[in-house]
Structure formats: C-alpha cells, structure tokens
C-alpha cells in the first residue's frame, strides 16, 4: 500500500454539532492526509455518518472549523460548491437517479458542473465503468441492475468528478452477502491508486487489508484511533474493547 503524503487534505478542529438540543458531535479533531485510508467504526448513533456528512456540507456544523483542500467550509455557497466538487460520496442506499440510464447518471456531474463536452464525458464515464467492471450495463437503467452493480455504478459516478477525497457511508450495509465482495474489491483497487478515503463500515477485513488508520467513535466523540494492527490487537479503552468483542464475535 502506498504511503500517505504529509500535508493534511482535511482538517477538522474543535468541531461540535447539535441536532436541536441533542449534542451529536463533541469536539471532533481530525487531520486526514492525502492518500490516507481511514476506516471509521462504532455503534449506531455514535455520529459517524453525521461526521462525514459534515465534510461535504450535507449537514451543518455549529462550532469549530472544517477545512478541505485549503478551502474553509462556511455558509459561503461558492466554498461549498468548490468543496463538493473535490469530495465524492457513496451512500448506503446508492441513491442512483432511476429515471436516467447508467451512463447518464455518470455524465450528469461532468456535463453540468465541470462543463465537459458530452463525448468526452461519455468516454471518461466508460473508462470508469470498465474500472468497476460493468461496462456492458451502460445503457441500462438502475432499476435493472442488482444491488452490487448499483453500488459500483454509484462509486463510478463519484469518480467521474475526479474527486480528491472519497467518502463512503456504510457502502455494503444494504447489500446481500454475495454482492459485498464485488464492491469491496472495487474499493480496494481504488485504495491502491492512492485515493484519500474515509470509509464507515463494519467490514473489518477491509480495514485490516487496506486502512492506514482505524477510528472508533462512540456517543459523538472520537474515542480511539490507531493503525489497524495496534487497533485490533491492543485496544486501549474499555468501550473500544466492548465494541470489538461484539463485532468480531463470530
């Protein structure tokens, strides 16, 4: 696996978030270096999803600073648009656009946001479809694909925007077991190309294979973070130990 480069591409300082009165993220401090692969895990309700959704402004933080690729995340719409262009996101439920074909799903962003001519956008989209190993599905509609294929299309859709960071929000949780591997393979191949990735997942095999850092969150705080071997073999805090025992008990 490639080594991470030193300048942080994402800096989060003292970030707090509330949903109404509920304090969902407490004093988050996180630096993500380029080409770093981070796996975030934790019990449900710990705020992991909320954290990565704050990075591309799908959620708004109330206190603290988030800086992505040198651009600070504020209410300034220009900053938000610029950041969203550099950050790609893959959702648990794919969120493909059902009324557009696969190739149209992929070229929508490049055509309307990066103003790419259609032919160029389609050629680039086909390249990404080949990368996720389903080029033959280009003219089909999302409703005609299996779950694993849809998620791979979703990954290709984000990649078409040439992002610097890819966020994954439990990408395999909605898939039938036999389709999880095909998606994880795509993500591993992506990691090998030095893409910065933040992945929320329960697939600990993926973490062990690919991650530089594993972060454990609980009740809105980052409890523990370490490189995978240390994390799994030497958890420092009781809560981490409890979580690991539950998730690895097979």
């Amino acid at each position: 696996m490639s080594e991470a480069v030193n300048d942080p591409i994402i800096e989060i300082n003292g970030m707090h978030k509330w949903f109404g009165r509920f304090h969902v993220l407490k004093d988050i401090n996180l630096d993500v270096k380029q080409a770093e692969r981070i796996v975030v895990c934790g019990p449900s309700g710990s705020g992991k999803s909320t954290l990565i959704r704050c990075i591309n402004r799908l959620e708004e933080h109330q206190r603290g600073r988030i800086v992505v690729d040198g651009i600070e995340l504020t209410n300034d719409l220009k900053n938000i648009d610029a950041i969203r262009r550099e950050v790609g996101m893959v959702f648990q439920h794919f969120n493909l656009f059902p009324h557009l074909t696969v190739i149209e799903n992929l070229t929508l962003g490049p055509i309307w946001v990066r103003r790419t001519p259609r032919k160029e956008a389609e050629e680039s989209a086909m390249k990404y479809l080949e990368r996720v190993k389903i080029p033959e599905q280009a003219e089909k509609f999302p409703g005609q694909l299996s779950g694993g294929q849809q998620q791979r299309v979703a990954i290709a859709r984000s990649l078409c925007m040439n992002p610097k960071v890819m966020l994954f929000d439990e990408p395999t949780s909605a898939l039938d077991p036999e389709m999880i591997k095909e998606v994880l393979d795509v993500m591993i191949e992506l990691a090998e190309t030095a893409m910065t990735m933040i992945v929320i997942t329960h697939e600990m095999g993926f973490a062990k294979a690919v991650a530089n850092r594993v972060i454990f969150m609980d009740e809105g705080e980052i409890i523990e973070q370490n490189e995978p071997r240390e994390f799994f073999n030497n958890p420092q805090y009781d809560r981490t130990k409890l979580f690991l025992s539950q998730i690895l008990a097979q």
């Binding site: 591309n56 969203r84 959702f91 969120n95 929508l108 962003g109 979703a154």
Partner: peptide
C-alpha cells in the same frame, strides 16, 4: 422523491436549482 436523490446530486456538486 427520496431525499437521498437530492443529497446525491448535491454531493456531486450540482446546485439546488439544477
């Protein structure tokens, strides 16, 4: 229309009116 559709579009960088 699922809210996730809007989120996916925002995540690619498409603005609200588009």
């Amino acid at each position: 229309v699922d809210w996730g559709q809007t989120e996916a579009a925002y995540a690619i960088g498409i603005g609200p009116s588009r």
